[in-house]
């Protein structure tokens, strides 16, 4: 069939095909090399022993110590407050930062926008746990450090998603509002805000959901919440309490996930 002048179609040329195979081969080799390097200091006796160890730990973890729940309610409430207040504080900072960072709303592309972008990147590059570690040193242990840690981490997340939403708005709607003789603040209120409101609500709820999860571990470094109890229980090898804390965290995360999904669906 190729002889009769029928054009022979091939997605890639023979050379390209060969190159692709070579690429895959190199990738597999790389994996093998890395694996050997990673495991050369592994003491394999411990690994072979792992199932026994795990079974042993598990046997000490069950049944959970349900009576410990009485002393978990308050830390749990603290955890929820850290997440919620932290998200609110983050929104207060992130909304203006997003407007300063978005190409189409920033007052100055050369001066203001880079500063706003830097705030966003700086906030995003540090994990909430590390923010908490720093803040516990500065502010002392407690809820306040947790709230601020969550807020600092969330500013970048909310700011980035929000400024991207602002940059994607329909410019004709903005133009139409400007054409009526509206001032800049009115253009913002009528032309831009209605367009980003659904994205804004979605982002806020999504971040709150993430912050619930993050705030459960902040106590590990002393920033308040249920993580404090977790660390205390692990330190004294009170495994049945640890199990209960895991269950409580899991239940909280599931509940917050369900709630945020409901809210997001209602907004769209």
């Amino acid at each position: 069939m190729s002889g009769a002048g029928q054009p022979l179609w091939r997605r890639r040329s023979r050379a390209a095909e060969l190159l692709r195979w070579l690429g895959w081969l190199l990738l597999v080799l790389l994996f093998v090399v890395c694996w050997t390097l990673m495991t050369q200091e592994q003491i394999w006796e411990f690994v072979w022993d792992a199932p026994t160890q795990a079974a042993d730990l598990f046997s000490r973890m069950v049944p959970p110590r349900w009576s410990y729940m009485d002393s978990l309610w308050l830390p749990l409430w603290d955890t929820l407050n850290i997440a919620t207040l932290g998200t609110l504080l983050a929104l207060l900072i992130a909304v203006p930062v997003a407007f300063l960072a978005a190409r189409n709303t920033t007052p100055s592309l050369l001066l203001v926008r880079p500063v706003a972008l830097f705030i966003i990147v700086a906030s995003r590059s540090v994990n909430a746990l590390i923010w908490a570690l720093l803040l516990v040193t500065i502010l002392g242990p407690g809820l306040l450090a947790g709230v601020i840690a969550i807020a600092l981490r969330s500013v970048g997340f909310i700011g980035k998603l929000l400024y991207e939403a602002i940059e994607e708005i329909d410019t004709r709607q903005v133009e139409a509002v400007r054409a009526t003789g509206a001032g800049p603040a009115q253009v913002l209120d009528y032309g831009i805000v209605p367009q980003i409101l659904p994205a804004f609500a979605g982002i806020a709820v999504f971040r709150w959901d993430i912050n619930i999860r993050e705030s459960t571990v902040l106590g590990l470094v002393g920033a308040g919440g249920i993580g404090l109890q977790l660390k205390a229980s692990v330190d004294v090898l009170a495994w049945p309490q640890v199990t209960l804390i895991f269950i409580v965290i899991l239940a909280t995360v599931i509940a917050s996930e369900w709630l945020s999904a409901r809210v997001r669906r209602a907004l769209i």
């Binding site: 004709r172 709607q173 133009e175 139409a176 009526t180 009528y190 032309g191 209605p194 367009q195 659904p198």
Partner: peptide, 13 residues
């Protein structure tokens, strides 16, 4: 007064 192609209404208002 300006009237636009594709209306340019603020869709969510």
């Amino acid at each position: 007064g300006m009237i636009f192609q594709e209306y340019a209404l603020v869709e969510r208002l």
